[in-house]
Amino acid sequence: MMEVLLMTGTIRPFSNIKHCNVNTRYAEYMENIKRYIMLSNFDAVIFAENSGYEIDPEYFEKLTEENNKKFFSNG
């Protein structure tokens, strides 16, 4: 059975929140996705970005190949 992690995130928040710097939020999400790809037992990571911010899935292409994982995103 395939083990899948579904992560949701809002890189560009819609409201005034304390932690609202888009560049910081982007970097933190990317680092966490990278950590789950490299260190978890999940076979696949799905990242559902819900603010419309586009991420580059190619950023994870080599990493997923090296770790025999899959990465999917709607961003």
Score class of each variant (00 low, 15 high):
residue 51 S to K: 05
residue 70 K to A: 10
residue 24 T to G: 04
residue 4 V to I: 15
residue 51 S to A: 12
residue 68 N to I: 12
residue 52 G to R: 06
residue 7 M to W: 00
residue 24 T to N: 09
residue 50 N to F: 09
residue 22 V to H: 10
residue 71 F to P: 00
residue 9 G to V: 08
residue 58 E to N: 15
residue 40 S to E: 14
residue 38 M to D: 07
residue 25 R to Q: 05
residue 6 L to R: 11
residue 3 E to L: 07
residue 37 I to F: 01
residue 49 E to I: 15
residue 9 G to A: 15
residue 55 I to G: 02
residue 18 K to M: 13
residue 12 R to T: 14
residue 32 N to F: 01
residue 13 P to K: 05
residue 50 N to D: 11
residue 63 L to V: 02
residue 28 E to D: 14
residue 18 K to N: 13
residue 67 N to G: 04
residue 75 G to P: 01
residue 7 M to Q: 01
residue 13 P to T: 06
residue 62 K to I: 09
residue 64 T to K: 07
residue 17 I to Y: 07
residue 72 F to I: 03
residue 26 Y to K: 14
residue 65 E to V: 14
residue 75 G to M: 05
residue 11 I to H: 02
residue 30 M to G: 00
residue 18 K to G: 13
residue 74 N to Y: 06
residue 11 I to N: 09
residue 50 N to A: 05
residue 49 E to N: 12
residue 31 E to I: 02
residue 31 E to L: 05
residue 46 I to S: 00
residue 67 N to T: 10
residue 53 Y to D: 02
residue 50 N to I: 11
residue 60 F to G: 02
residue 42 F to K: 06
residue 21 N to C: 05
residue 17 I to P: 00
residue 74 N to D: 12
residue 41 N to M: 05
residue 46 I to T: 00
residue 67 N to E: 02
residue 59 Y to K: 03
residue 62 K to Y: 07
residue 24 T to H: 11
residue 73 S to P: 01
residue 68 N to G: 03
residue 59 Y to N: 09
residue 14 F to S: 13
residue 3 E to M: 11
